[in-house]
Design a protein around this nucleic acid. Sequence first.
RNA 1: GGCGCUAUAGCCAAGUGGUAAGGCCAGGGUCUGCAAAACCCUCAUCCCCCGGUUCAAAUCCGGGUGGCGCCU
Length: 300
Amino acid sequence: MDKILVICGATASGKTKLAVDCALKLNTEVISADSQLVYKELNIGTAKPTAEEMRGVKHHMLDVVEPSCNYSVSDYEAAARKIADNLTEQGKVPIICGGTGFYINSVLFDLQYGNAAADYKIREQYEKILNENGKEELHSYLKKVDPETAEKLHPNDVKRVIRALEIYEVSGSKKSDIKDGFNPRYDYTAVAIDYPREELYERINNRVDEMFERGLVDEVALLIKKGINEDCQCMQAIGYKEVILGLKNGYNDSTMRDIIKQNTRHYAKRQITFFKKLKNIIWLKPNEATAENVARLLNE
RNA sequence: GGCGCUAUAGCCAAGUGGUAAGGCCAGGGUCUGCAAAACCCUCAUCCCCCGGUUCAAAUCCGGGUGGCGCCU
């Protein structure tokens, strides 16, 4: 199996720097695994690596679509794998670096996602039912076609309930029939930087302050001016949705900052929970997060 | 110094005699095509302190202490 290096973990934990350090040492390239960095023009709020931070290392999967686009794991999976395989052919060990665990899983493991593509018409149809008849009603539909999945999903978890329904309608088979088993496609080494919670939260707070100093509000205002509004998928990103709300309601900067900091802290917590599940992940102390250490782990 | 109001978890806060709502924060978790999304779980043996009334008090009474306001 081909080797691959994964650098993941919470937001603001120093992934970018470590990835660049490693890429320079290993003479390879970085494939970003981040659901928001794929969007062009979302730079400040997503903390997209700058040319300076990249230090000449080639980064893939940044700026691949317009802000008006919808993007999903399957798009990512296809593109990222191709790049990874390409690097492998050149004899390089690809570095996947990012905080979107869902995306990382898609390239690391052989997952089928029910073999059912997203169908926005079907989603709309169920959303209508949701709005008219409520969550319980929607959940009861799923109970009829896929009781096992319905049992697992809380009725409030409407997005997953709708997806399960969608899988059934698109493919004719049940979500509960998916038995993928997370078989690795690569011989991967995964590392994450493990900051003490308080320190991580402090880093997050500082980073959000920096974003405002760098002109986050202007960035959002410009996007709005170009017709990118809160209905666009990319505007669900932390930093963007809050500024839109703030602009609408006349919040001052400090209020927006506080909300963004809070949401980012919550996000970081979820990321940590997610990555704890990644098999064989290695949690490095901040002072252990060096290219030398990672290179050694890679060769073990 | 006098008078009035007030005192419930880290924060906001309901409850005014029958055995502590809710929200936030925090922590834990779920995650198979919207994932920086969406969702779930946990979180006061106790209501400032002391004494009293009562079968029963966070809830009533008295005193103390802290806070707030007004007056002199």
